[in-house]
Structures are given as C-alpha cells and as structure tokens.
Design a binder for these strands. Structure first.
Lengths: 142, 142
DNA sequence: TTACGATCTGTAGCGGTTACAGGAGCAAGG
DNA sequence: CCTTGCTCCTGTAACCGCTACAGATCGTAA
C-alpha cells in the first residue's frame, strides 16, 4: 500500500499550489509530518501528503487558523458522528468569527465613507479628515 | 508657548488610551518624536504629544497602517488644498481596501455557511466539511 | 530606611509566511 | 570526466503591530 510515485518538493508545490518555502514551514510547524528523504537528503512526497497539502491550502484560503487545521486533520476520517460534530463546530465557530470581522469592517467603512465625503477639495479651511482624526473620542470603532 | 504641565508615560497612557508599551513602541518606530526626559530619565509628555497619541489611536482604530499615519502626521496642518487632497486620497484608498476586505470575507462567509448547512449531524457517512476541504480545487476564495 | 510602585532598557514572541545566503545534489551536454 | 545550471538543502531574518517579559533604576510615602 505504498506505491508512492514520489514527488520532489517542487513538484509537490506545483501540484498543490503551496509555495515551496511554505511547505517546509508547515513541516517545521508540525502541520505535516516530515517526509521520506532521497539518498541525497531531498524531501519526497507521495499522493497522501499532496492531498494533505491541498487540504491545508483550502483551509487557509477559507481563513482557518493553523491551530484549527491541526484539529481538523487530527480528526479520524471514518470516525463516527463525533468527528463530524467537531468539524461542524469548528467551522461554525470560524464562520461566526468571519461574520464578526465583517461587521467590524463595515463600521470602519461607514466611518471612512463619512470622512471622505465630508472633505470637498478646497472648500474648508481646516481639513475635516484631519480634524476628525484629531478628535478626542473615537466613535469610529469600539 | 511651552507651558507644558508634563505627564509621565503612565498618565499619558491613561489620558489617551494608548498602552504604555505601545507608546514606547511608537517612539521606537519613529511615529512620535522622543519626548523630553526628567532628571531621572523618565519620559515627559505635554498636551501636544498627547494629542498626537490620540490621533494615532483614532487612525489605528480606523485600520490605518502606520505608514499611512506617518504620512498623515507629516502633512502641514495649515497647508492649503494640497495637504487636504492628500489626506482625502489616503483615506479614500484605505476605504477601498476595507471594501475589498469586506468583499473577500463575504465570499468566505458564503462558503462556510454552505459547508455548515451541508453537515447535518449523524446523517452522512462521510463528513461533508472534510470532504469539501479535501477537494482538489478550492472554489472558496481566489 | 525601607518598601513599593512606576518607569527604564533590551530582547523575544505572536501568525503565517516570504526572502535571503551559502552550500550541496543531480541531470544533461561537451 | 567535468562543467554548467537547475533544484534543493539548512538556518536565519524580515514583515506588522504590538505585547510581555527580565532585571535595573527612579521616586515617593510611611
């Protein structure tokens, strides 16, 4: 069960879209296991590890933290409802964090929009943007 | 024009809401000028520098980068339309970055929402979340 | 004086990469 | 066989915006 058809790190990078330096970083960080080495000391990756790299890449592009990814990868793949529930909970938690960030950014957006539209070129003597930024209490974002 | 009624760094921190360590960091980073020192070598801040700290705090809470803040603070305060235009341009650029981030996060939100709602506890044999994350092409976020 | 608080300096850590420098493996061409 | 040129190796530092120490010093009140 190990007909590997191994890839070098460059091939693994091309196959998965994960940067070479990033692959090595993931190994250092314990996100993937140290791969087999060739006689000359080069990393050799098989299908399984390429899949793991794709998994990590997908997780990262969805904004999951490495800690979460570690948890997701350590779930048993055929584990019953427990693993599934854990994955769901993790994803739901991340979703709510994303929503919180959106809400926060929308507040910033509103404040900045107000500032920009208050500033008509060459109209006021004092720049309203600088004035707003110098105001003692920031009402922009709590 | 320098009746200062100086504050220690702790007082300045309390007055502006900027953490003590952060104030020192801003000085190190060249965002504020090194303040006057007392005989014993302690930093003493006047009104003007407290205002600067409040300015920085407001900028940061609006998400401005330190580089932008440096630019905003180096604008002449009574400078004519040029300074005003620059502040406006800077703010508008930041606003568009915020909007881009919101758009990106909304994509993530949609993808995560789909994943969570696809995962009903104890229904499928394979967890749809893990399956989606393991899929070769990530369509979640480009 | 003694104790305690506030402050000082310098350094390291966070997350998630990315970017080097300086060496070594490895295949192809001459 | 030897050179050329590519890939890969290790180790380290930079990025951003702080935050958190450790160990020393200052200043003040009891």
């Amino acid at each position: 069960m190990s007909a590997h058809r191994d890839m070098t790190i460059g091939e693994a990078s091309a196959a998965t879209g994960v940067n070479i330096e990033t692959i090595r970083y993931y190994e250092r960080a314990g996100l993937i296991a140290p791969p087999v080495r060739s006689g000359g000391g080069r990393r050799l990756y098989g299908h399984e590890q390429a899949s793991q790299l794709r998994f990590i890449r997908n997780c990262r592009s969805l904004g999951f933290k490495m800690e979460d990814i570690r948890a997701l990868m350590s779930l048993p793949q055929n584990g019953g409802g427990a693993a599934e529930a854990e994955a769901r909970a993790l994803t739901a938690r991340h979703l709510s964090e994303v929503r919180a960030k959106i809400a926060e950014l929308k507040k910033l957006e509103a404040a900045l929009k107000t500032m920009v539209s208050a500033c008509k070129p060459g109209e006021q003597s004092t720049c309203p943007i600088v004035a707003a930024l110098a105001a003692p209490g920031s009402n922009a974002a709590q």
